[in-house]
Amino acid sequence: MSAVADGCLRVPVLLPPVWRALPWRALGAAAGAGLAAAAVARLVPGGPDPAFALVLLRCAAVAFALGLAFLLDDPARHITAAVPTRRAVRTGLRMALAVPLAAVCWTVALLLIPGRTRPPAGDVTLEAAVLAALALTGAAAAVRCTDEPQPGAAVAVTSAAGTALALLLPERWALFVAAGSPDWAVAHQRWAALLALTVAAGTALLPEPLRRGPSLALRPPH
């Protein structure tokens, strides 16, 4: 109990340094790219059709997720591993700071799509949330399983490749379904299930491991 209270007390002290240590360049580049993709909808003469608007929103969601993949990059990782505040708290704090920013960016991206052609906002937000959660979970997994201080690039590449792979899924398990498709509702049940799994896995990966796991022959890009 005292440990938890201690952690809570330390949070206000930790906030400024964690805020400064966020990988602002990567986050900024991703946010810029995502918002630019969504802004295209305003520039297309005659307004985008619903299918195009959906693809633009998905591009924005992937871009934001790629930015979040860099969130846990910490060049000083080998030093901060020894501080008394546990990693779960530090990582949680980073996420707590970045997720509202991502939410704001996503809302702006949604509003950039003209209302007539905007896909169902709740469902697309679910997709974006899953992509973001997958990227964050990937980052947490990379931090937990490797010694790399800045695994963001590897996580981003793997997330982007995974997204491309999801496009190849057979129709039965399709995730990226077209706007107005009869499979839309079923696909979004899959997205919801994926979100639950990802959040559970991500939470399990937050604490520092007690011992080092086996190393793989295959590796994420390093």
Binding site: R25, A26, A29, A30, A33, G34, A36, A37, C59, V62, A63, L66, G67, A69, F70, Q150, G152, A153, A156, V157, S159, A160
Partner: peptide
Amino acid sequence: PSIVGGPLFIVV
């Protein structure tokens, strides 16, 4: 030479 370059380039 930014580490975020490659994947973002794909999306853009």
